[in-house]
Design a protein around this nucleic acid. Structure first.
Lengths: 354, 354
DNA sequence: ATGAAAGCGCTAACAG
DNA sequence: CTGTTAGCGCTTTCAT
């Protein structure tokens, strides 16, 4: 009671009733006007909007969500925000959220099973309208929690095949084939591959794509080193690679961080990139443009990926009928920069070892 | 009616009443038990929790927020998520959010005044409990919207001095002085500074700190080039710098991206870093570890900054009384990596121009 | 200590 | 086309 009377004095907590009163209409009409229901009399609508603008009224989304049963929030679960792969994705989600009047509930599992669990709980408590799961690997039981509550889901590569679950399949082969053929065209014969952690589907798929691409052009894919998608892994991989004879003159990496590690180790070994060693990455994170030299890499467009994911969620939410299962495809392709060059002629080394 | 009876069959949309029924208590007791109000009978509490766990009940945060008047959401407004300065900050916010049972509403203005406006609107509509504004520059009128609604705010460097507004002041001087003295100790006499966009307070402050630090040790600060905090700006700056005689042997940059641009241009000019040119950055973004060579830079801890911001908001929210104005301080300091070395001896150049 | 009941701010039947 | 009214799921007096 006291609270309500206070509102007469400070109108910083306006509600729809107050607007109704001042515009001399019912709350229903205010609601309709604000939601631009076409059937409202333009006269009344104008009156309502006038008051709304004058008072700086903003509808309370919580209340809306409560009654409408839709929060207009999408969850986004990533494995680590600081992984350079994700900021671009988040930005794209943000852009689309603004465009479509949603909010993003971002969550970062930091590879911790407990955090994943919390992550899912948070999504459910906030009653998100859908979740994009961009973490490489997640407990099935957690996914069940979401599916149980009929929350639309979208995965990359690893999603279960079920209703209300969309899947974005990455075509690794295309980009990796281009990379291999690019190196081959530069007369590289000894082309190595540094893998990611081999328990990840995506890392496995990249490796397989490499092998197939080498097969296609009759080159042996015997120079395969296991990495872990980190800079340190890339450094270690190059060191191992130096022991092989004949030496690799080109290295294709399972992701960009690995490639950056390779470049870094090459620098430490006084091995010049690209004149003595060509390096190709994968992902095309923003950082790839900023290395010295700028990295030739296989692009897997983060913007495109995010767009597909967002659209997948939107269509599941808007869809009334039993939504058809949809598969989305994302193609990869090579981006040429300066970390690749003609293979060095055998026997000739530009710099003597220091 | 129909809706309610459906719930008998599919319990995926449990509510507090259903829990109450099954635990044979009132909804009030359920609420109390869940919120761990100490006065509830342990017996009843146990009964409630049993049902809650069995049914996988998660309270509806929207409803909670509606009645409690607190959303447990903090807004975070940044200028661009893809700016490498921010992911670490967001991750820290995320960590603290999990710890304290909040959510983060992230918003990215992408330097667009319209987006800023939308950003503020979104914050208000979702009834956030506080907003951290980490965008360099924002319309006063927008800030007014938030202040008007008594939303606690925290700024970095640029906040107005008002109640409910916290401010984090950065001590640029400390780190920049260390950088200057580091270069001086390496016998650099010609030390240049590449500024950021000079309409930004933070850029101005860095430049001033440089000038003062040079003064302190009796070196002239005549080599100042205006940059724009981008890689391209850094490249352009170094080109300009090459015209000055005697040439600069050390360059301090207003941020890391600029420094990376300088390194990149040096590479293009076949000028070796650090043996012919020492480069120092500012911010210590993650990327700084990944450049070739790794960048010596002034650290402004993003984790620390984020922590201060989050705590500032928390304390404003929890505080009941008229909150005392608080100023937080963040100190900067030099991180040594490999982009700096002894100044080259005059007259001696290792490589002839190519 | 527990329960009944009144709302939080909004939308959506349902009447008129 | 507009208004009345019954909730959405929860917390919180106020009685008991």
């Amino acid at each position: 009671m006291l609270l309500r009377s206070q509102k007469f004095f400070s109108h910083f907590s306006m509600d729809i009733r107050e607007i109704a009163r001042r515009a001399k209409v019912s709350t229903a009409t205010v609601s309709r006007a604000i939601n631009r229901i076409p059937t409202v009399d333009p006269q009344l609508s104008k009156r309502v909007w006038k008051v709304v603008d004058e008072l700086g009224y903003y509808p309370n989304t919580q209340a809306r969500a409560l009654v409408s049963g839709r929060s207009r929030i999408f969850g986004l679960i990533v494995s680590e925000i600081t992984n350079p792969f994700f900021p671009e994705i988040l930005q794209t989600f943000e852009d689309l959220a603004v465009e479509n009047n949603y909010e993003i509930l971002i969550t970062s599992t930091v590879h911790d099973p407990k955090r994943m669990e919390i992550s899912v709980r948070r999504m459910i408590e906030r009653r998100v309208d859908g979740v994009a799961i961009l973490t490489f690997g997640m407990e099935d039981s957690l996914i069940e929690h979401l599916r149980f509550r009929k929350v639309p889901l979208v995965f990359v590569d690893v999603g279960p095949d079920a209703p209300l679950v969309a899947n974005i399949r990455i075509d690794y082969q295309n980009g990796i084939r281009q990379a291999v053929q690019h190196l081959a065209a530069l007369r590289h014969k000894r082309i190595a591959f540094v893998t990611g952690p081999l328990h990840l589907k995506s890392a496995l798929a990249r490796k397989a794509a490499f092998q197939q691409s080498m097969d296609e052009i009759g080159l042996p894919s015997d120079l395969i080193i296991e990495g872990d998608h980190t800079l340190e892994g890339g450094k270690a991989a190059l060191i191992q690679l130096m022991d092989f004879r004949p030496r690799a003159t080109g290295v294709l990496c399972s992701n960009d961080m690995t490639a950056i590690g390779v470049i870094r180790e090459a620098y430490d070994l006084d091995l010049s990139v690209p004149s003595e060693l060509s390096v190709v990455g994968f992902d095309d994170i923003r950082l790839a443009q900023f290395t010295t030299p700028p990295l030739t890499t296989v692009q897997m467009s983060q913007r495109e990926l995010a767009k597909l994911a967002f659209q997948a969620l939107m269509s599941k939410v808007e869809a009334d009928g039993p939504s058809h299962r949809v598969e989305y495809k994302l193609v990869t392709s090579l981006i040429l920069r300066d970390s690749t060059a003609l293979a060095p002629t055998p026997g000739e080394r530009k710099k003597p070892s220091r």
